[in-house]
Design a binder for these strands. Structure first.
Length: 276
DNA sequence: ATGCTACCCTGGCAGC
DNA sequence: TGCTGCCAGGGTAGCA
């Protein structure tokens, strides 16, 4: 569920409170959540969280103990929540990871559908790239950092519908269904368009950056499950122009928004404002 | 190499 | 009030 703005909001919400904290105990739940052996997570008992960052839709925590250094990857899938809450809070159903911190708070991962993933990699002499690969982090470029030239070359030679390409995390990492649809609408490009021209790709890049920045400012989109690490909802959903608006009038031309299925997902678009 | 489908899960909601 | 079917912000294996 969470895309780049939602994951960025979670990372920001955790950064100040989590950085410098010691993990007093570790509890792991359903094994299918763990890409690496869940037993390895138990090594983090007594470790200190040094920092938290976001790469695409992945959260990356730096953790150290006795000169050893790990990166912990947490992906929230569709329904994952990462909450920082008082330790005495009753355990929610579908809780799959608990870090009890030394300040009487817990960091808890709750994910009903279990589409999320957790992986741990020790940082030794390996190249940073190899560590990210071991953690299963998609190799795509950050959409807020991609240069115009890289963006153009990335999409120009591909033959798939532009919406499918935007969802491919090994090209750009961080866009999901909501922000792909919203960016294409703002750029006036039909989701099924192929071989999009350079001027229109430039416009698309600008609109992607714009919509992501606006969404981060609004704390992300809370459509169903997503909440910040403190349980608060995001508010960008009220600014959606096409996502979830099938049948409603287009904000630009008043004709009804339509929906089709692409890459196994709903694509929402305006058939008059968005051109092939 | 690239593109597409089926599948992984649970829960909420509309319609009967 | 059930029940059924459909839908959902994620990714990936396996096949053309």
């Amino acid at each position: 569920m969470p895309e780049l703005p939602e994951v960025e909001t979670v990372a920001r919400g955790l950064r100040d409170t989590l950085t410098g904290r010691v993990i007093r105990s570790v509890e792991v739940g359903h094994a299918s959540m763990f890409q690496t052996n869940p037993e390895e997570l138990l090594q983090l008992k007594g470790a200190c969280v040094r920092g938290i960052e976001r790469a695409g839709k992945y959260l990356l925590l730096d953790v150290t103990r006795n000169q050893r250094h790990w990166k912990l990857m947490i992906h929230l899938g569709m329904t994952g929540k990462l909450l920082l809450i008082p330790a005495e809070t009753p355990r929610a159903k579908h809780t799959h990871l608990i870090f009890e911190l030394e300040n009487s708070n817990d960091l808890r991962l709750i994910d009903p559908r279990r589409f999320g993933r957790v992986a741990l990699a020790e940082i030794t002499t390996a190249e940073p790239q190899a560590v990210l690969q071991a953690l299963g982090v998609a190799p795509g470029i950050e959409p807020l950092e991609v240069s115009e030239e890289d963006f153009l070359t990335m999409f120009q030679k591909r033959d798939a519908p532009i919406k499918n390409l935007l969802l491919n995390q090994s090209l750009l990492r961080g866009l999901g269904n909501i922000y792909a649809d919203e960016s294409l609408f703002r750029a006036g490009i039909h989701p099924q368009a192929k071989r999009v021209s350079r001027p229109r790709l430039r416009r698309l890049r600008e609109q992607i950056r714009q919509v992501l920045r606006e969404a981060i400012d609004a704390g992300g989109s809370s459509v169903s499950d997503y909440v910040h690490s403190d349980g608060q909802r995001g508010w960008f959903q009220v600014q959606h122009r096409v996502y979830g608006k099938e049948g409603e009038p287009c904000v630009a031309c008043s004709r009804p928004i339509r929906r089709l299925v692409l890459a196994g997902r709903s694509a929402h678009y305006c058939p008059t404002c968005q051109r092939w």
